[in-house]
Computed example of a mutant assay.
Amino acid sequence: MRLRAEWLDDPASRAVTDALEGAGHRALYVGGCVRNALLGAPVSDLDIATDAAPEAVVAAAAGAGLRAVPTGIAHGTVTVVSDGRPYEVTTFRRDEETDGRHARVAFTAEVAEDAARRDFTMNALYAAPDGAVVDPLEGLPDLLARRVRFVGAPDARIREDYLRILRFFRFHAWYGDPSGGIDPDALDACARHAGGLGRLSAERIGAEMKKLLAAPDPAPALAAMAASGVLARVMPGASASNVASLVHAEGDLPPRWERRALALGGAVDGWRLSNAEARGMERRAGAAASTLPPAALGRAFGREAAEDAALLAAAAAEGGVPAETFERIAAGAEASFPLAARHLMPALEGPALGEGLKRAERAWLASDLTLDREALRRIALGERA
């Protein structure tokens, strides 16, 4: 099979592969770029595997006038920059020792050994610069069938790095065929080794979960996670029962991992979110708990949080969100409170002025922002009287 992709013929890509091949080495694209191109999915990063040792990669790049950055040279990775684009070039490797989180590797000249250390067969696909697909482990049929299958024995792959449990469900969410079910042997292995997730850092767990939740429809994968006991390990108290109805309510709206996380209802304390992410989750939780009408919700919590709250409410009722609701939320998020202190002075001053403005704003929110300035002024003054 031959891969066809614009980036194969890009002069920047050609410069990197020509530099390696010109120095007598193999240059094979590998992993996500090959997988996604074969599926017709977007490709972001371009990774290259080679039989050249890291020092030889640096020398080949320098000989071709390309910049080489030793970003992970101890693990065999050199970033080669061509026309401003980074290409991660990694020497073929085999695992010498693993501890469930990290691996000690040795370099090899054999692509089959490099493929054997990868997690899933669909990630063990390579492509030559001319597009010829190299498939040492017969992963192409799995990819075309959208079947997520571990390389070799699932138990062995998981013990090498327990993050592969979460990656299994994430890849099923993004690339698996829900109608084909999930690999039962892999699912059993994930359940057996779920305790190993406790050895992972919060950052790694959070990163995987956010990627999983951003899939077009993560509901089947999350249901399998819940059934295997894995979901409870990374999100205590979570339930996957509302996610399918949420995805249905979302329709063509872009997915947001925060919205799906709230639908699960569990704790995300163990994900080590950034301050901005934590604040975003708090806003969404506040909006979801609020009884404010749509425009007022948008005004109080912002457009994204209010939209997510409306979708979560619709999912709980197994319904949808009317377009008018989104329009009101958007209008509310842009609205400005029409009453200012100058409209109440000198009738109100000092603490009474602040109290009057607060009363008027509460009434404005309760009216879904429909009260005009004069009505709000009367409310502020009338409350005072």
Rank of each mutant, 00 (worst) to 15 (best):
A289L: 03
V16F: 05
G229I: 04
D308K: 06
R283F: 03
Y29R: 08
G176R: 13
I182Q: 02
V80P: 02
F326R: 13
W257M: 13
A310L: 15
R85V: 13
D368Q: 04
A244Y: 03
A263P: 01
S241D: 15
A145R: 11
M122F: 14
W257E: 03
R299V: 10
L187H: 03
R284I: 06
M122P: 01
S274L: 05
W7R: 07
A23M: 15
E138T: 02
L213E: 11
R283P: 02
V243R: 09
G63L: 14
A340G: 02
Y175D: 13
G181T: 09
L163Q: 01
P338Q: 07
A227H: 13
L339A: 04
A385W: 07
E258K: 02
R377I: 00
A12S: 07
D83A: 14
Y87H: 06
P216E: 13
D217P: 01
L3P: 11
A323M: 14
L163W: 00
I158V: 12
E21A: 13
D252L: 07
A244V: 04
V234F: 13
R303H: 05
A340Y: 08
M225A: 09
M345F: 10
T291W: 02
P129I: 01
A363R: 00
L246N: 09
A5R: 10
V268Q: 06
G40D: 04
R2I: 01
I182D: 00
R377N: 14
A202G: 11
D10E: 12
E277D: 14
A202V: 05
A375T: 09
L166D: 03
A103T: 00
G195D: 02
T291R: 11
A227T: 14
R199T: 06
A68V: 10
L339K: 07
D368A: 03
D269Q: 11
V80Y: 11
R26F: 13
I158D: 07
P351K: 03
E55A: 00
P70V: 09
V268G: 06
V148A: 12
R4D: 11
G72T: 02
T370D: 14
A226E: 15
L222W: 12
L66P: 06
R279D: 09
G65D: 04
W364P: 06
A232L: 06
V57A: 11
F169E: 03
P54F: 10
V30F: 04
R303T: 00
E307I: 04
P346H: 11
A189T: 06
G176S: 14
A156C: 05
S290W: 05
D9T: 15
L262G: 04
V80L: 00
L262Q: 08
D185I: 15
D18E: 15
A56P: 08
E160F: 09
G298R: 15
K358E: 12
V57P: 00
L140Q: 13
S290H: 02
A128V: 02
